[in-house]
Write a protein that binds this DNA or RNA. Sequence first.
DNA 1: ATTGTATTTTTACGCGCGTAAAATTATGCA
DNA 2: TGCATAATTTTACGCGCGTAAAAATACAAT
Lengths: 342, 342
Amino acid sequence: MVGHKIRNMEEFSAICGVSRPTVSKYFNEPTSVRASTRQKIETALKKYDFRPNLYAVNQNRRITKNIGIVVPYVADPFFSEVARKLERCCIEAGFSPSTFSSHGSPDHEVEILEILRSMRPAGVLMAPIGRATHKKKLEAFCKEIPTVLVDSNLEGIGATFIGSNNFQSVPLMVEYLCRTGEPPCFFEMPPVNPNANKRRAAYTQAMEELGHTPHIIRVEGEDWEFEDIGYKGGLKLLGSGDLPSRTILCSNDRLAIGLMAAAYELEIKVGITPDCTLRIAGHDDHPFARYTCPSLTTISQDYDAITERSVDTLVDLIEHGRTKRDREATLYEGRLIMRSSA
Amino acid sequence: MVGHKIRNMEEFSAICGVSRPTVSKYFNEPTSVRASTRQKIETALKKYDFRPNLYAVNQNRRITKNIGIVVPYVADPFFSEVARKLERCCIEAGFSPSTFSSHGSPDHEVEILEILRSMRPAGVLMAPIGRATHKKKLEAFCKEIPTVLVDSNLEGIGATFIGSNNFQSVPLMVEYLCRTGEPPCFFEMPPVNPNANKRRAAYTQAMEELGHTPHIIRVEGEDWEFEDIGYKGGLKLLGSGDLPSRTILCSNDRLAIGLMAAAYELEIKVGITPDCTLRIAGHDDHPFARYTCPSLTTISQDYDAITERSVDTLVDLIEHGRTKRDREATLYEGRLIMRSSA
DNA sequence: ATTGTATTTTTACGCGCGTAAAATTATGCA
DNA sequence: TGCATAATTTTACGCGCGTAAAAATACAAT
C-alpha cells in the first residue's frame, strides 16, 4: 500500500506490465488469465490497492452484478434479520446487494422501485408491503427486472414467491393449543399483507377441523406499529370482560408483545403455570420473543431456508433466464417453539 | 407513459427538440434552463418517463450525490430507527443515501468501507462499531472522504462527532433513582464502544457527587447480543443473592430487556409499586421499551436532533469544505422517560 | 435600428471501462 | 524442429453522460 494513488485501470495495467483489457478480464474472473499474468497483477495489487471504478464498470457491463433487496420495514427485527441473511447470501453468490426499507409507506416503496430501476440491478428480492403496495407499478417493474417475491405473496406478480406455509404453521399451533388447554381465539393484525388473511383463514379451518368454533378478534389500526396496535387493542379487549377464550393466538409476535404489555398492566397473569389465567401465542419467532415476560410461545419461520432459496432462485433466474417452475410458490414449514406463554 | 422506450439522453433530447447538454443541465438543476425549454422537457418527460443512466452520471460528475450511511447493527431497533431518520434527512437535502449494516463485525465494517470507497460518495455518516473498529483503516478512509461520526465517538477520527451527552443523561437518571428510592448499582454492557465506558464513568461520578458508593456489575459477553447477555448475566446476578442494590441501572435498554426477562423467570417482581422488590432502568428509549413488562423507565436520546444535525453538518462539509468547528463534538441532552419499571 | 452584455444552447471532448475481433503467444503432436 | 490449434493478450471502438469553451440568442439601453 505505498506509492502514489492510481487513477485508473490504464495506469494500473502499465504498472503491472500487462494490457488494460487483460486487467479488466482479471477483475471479472481472476482465473481467466494466465497464472503468470495473474501473479503480476496480484503483486501490483498488494502494493497499490487499486479498484476499478464502480460506475464505469456498471455502465459498460451488459447487466450489473447488483441485487436490490427491499423490505417493508427494517425497524421490524423480523425484517432486519431477513435482510441481513439475504445480503449475506447475495455476497456469497458474488453479487452486490443494496438494501432498502419502504418504512411501511407504499409511496416510498414506489420511490424505491424508481431508484432500483435506475440502478439496473441484475435482479431484485422483494418483500412487499402487501395490501397497500401499488400493484400496477410493481407488476410493471417485475416485467422489466427479474424479481423474486419474499415473505408476502402478491398473486401473479414477480417471477415466483418464497415464504412460509401459513396453512401448515397456524394449524400446528392451533392443534397444540387445543391439546394443552382451552381452544384459542384469534387476535388478528390489520390485514396489511396476504399473510394476515391466510393466517386467519388457516386458524378458522384448523379450529373447525378440530370441532371447535373459531373466534376472530379484529384489532383496529392501519400501519406497521403492531406493538401499539396490540397494546391498545389488548387493553380494550381484556378490559371489556367478553373474551371468547382464555387462550389467544396472535397473528404475529409483535402484536403479541403489545398484548402482553396490556395484560401486564391489567394485572392478568399470562403463561401456562397454574396461577395464570391467560395464554398468549405468537407467530414468527421474532428475535425478542425469547425475552418477553413470560417468554413467548410461537412459530419459527425457516429464515435460512427462505433466504437461501430466494437468492438461489433469483441467481438461477438471472443466469439462465426464466425459471422452469414459473410462479410456482415455494413454501417452507414453520416449527413450534414452546416457551412459557402458552 | 406511452411510446417506445428511450435508450439515452441523446434520444430523449431529440424528442424534446433541444440539445442533449441542455437536457443534462435540466436534470442537474431544472431552473438553470429557460422556462420555455423547461416546459418542452417536462412535457416530454410526462410522456416518455426517461431517467439518466445512474452510472454514466456518477462516472462523469466531479463528485457524486451519494451519501453512505453505516450503522453497526441494523437488527438493533435503535439503529434501524437512526438509519431511517438519517436516510430521510439525506433525501431532503437532495442526496441519495445508501445504508449498510456492519452486523457487529469489524471485518464486515472494513468491507463496507471498501465498498463505500468504490462508490465515491460525497460524504459518509458513520456509526462505528466502536472498540473493535479497525481504527487505522477508518482513519485513512476519513482522510479520503468527508465523514461524520454518529452515536459512538472515536477520538480524533472523522470530521466531527454528533451524539448524546452521557455525562448529562446518566446523572439525570442517577439523581432520579436516588431521589425516589435506593441508590442504583450499574449493570454494565460489554465495552463494545466508548458510550459503554462513558456511561460507567458518568454513573460513578454522579453517585459520588450524591455521596453514595458506586457499584459496578460487569457482565460477560463480547458481541451485540445484549438481550442474551443481560438475560444470562441477570440469572447469575439475581440468583446469587449478593445484589449490591435493589435498584439496577442498565447501560442500555436491550440489556435491561434481558435482565427483566431473567427477573421474571426468577419470580422477582420489578417496578415501583409497593409489591415490587426490584427497580430496573435503562438508557436509549429503545422502540420496544414502552412494551416491556413492566414498561421501562429510561433515557430518551434526541434522535431527531442528532440525525438532523449530522446530515446538516455533513452537507455543510461537502459543500463548503472543512467545517469551522473542526472535530468539535456536538452533544445533545437526553430526556428522562418515567414509566413503571423504576 | 444598433450595439453591448448576460444568458442560454451547442460543439467537442473525455471520463474509465467492457468487449468483439485481430494479433500474438503458448501448447501439443508428429 | 515444424506446424496446427488452443489459449491469451492487444487493438479498436463505443457506452451515456458531464462540462469547458465556442456559438448563438435574448435582452436592455442607447
